[in-house]
Amino acid sequence: MFEMIAFYTFAFLIIASFIVVVTSNNALYSMSALASGMILISGLFFLLNADFLGVVQLIVYTGAVIALYAFAMIFFDTTKNLIEVNSKKIIFLLISFSTILLVFIMTAPIKSEAVTALHPIHQGVGNTQDIGIVLFTKYLVPFELAAVMLLVAMIGGILMAGKKMDMLVANEEIQEATK
């Protein structure tokens, strides 16, 4: 019974926060609701006994959403409302898309009985160890690919940020030399 109460509380709060994310005109409201939604999702993981994934959700999204806040601080005055352009085309597309999604969600329980876990967790071993084993045996290639992709993104970021760095230094040196 406690699980049920907890699940419905978390589910309701998550949906409420994400509705605020979409409907609010204020960047600060949206981002705070996004952060709370992401953090509340970890509650669902904890309910499913997936402790490790829950904590990963917490740690990753705290950092990620804070980076978003940093961007918002650069681009907007967060105490003012934004004026948004709502075109009818987008609303139409979104409604039709969410209707299809709703149909899938409602019909999912028919299929769900046939679904079994590919890698069931071992009793007595924490799920951290299980995730580690699966990640480094069966899913090693996707895992390493993701790592390489992140490395590429990082190098790209450094390159973009540092493109003019050496030029700036050179200019300063020239200026100092001419003084």
Binding site: V55, I59, T62, Y69, T128
Partner: peptide, 26 residues
């Protein structure tokens, strides 16, 4: 008493940083 004690404590502590951030922004 969970299997992921250290990560849990550090993760939740990191969320606390939202407090000064939101205070500053609002």
């Amino acid at each position: 008493d969970s299997n992921i004690g250290v990560l849990y404590v550090l993760g939740i502590m990191a969320i606390g940083m939202f407090s000064p951030l939101l205070a500053g922004l609002s």
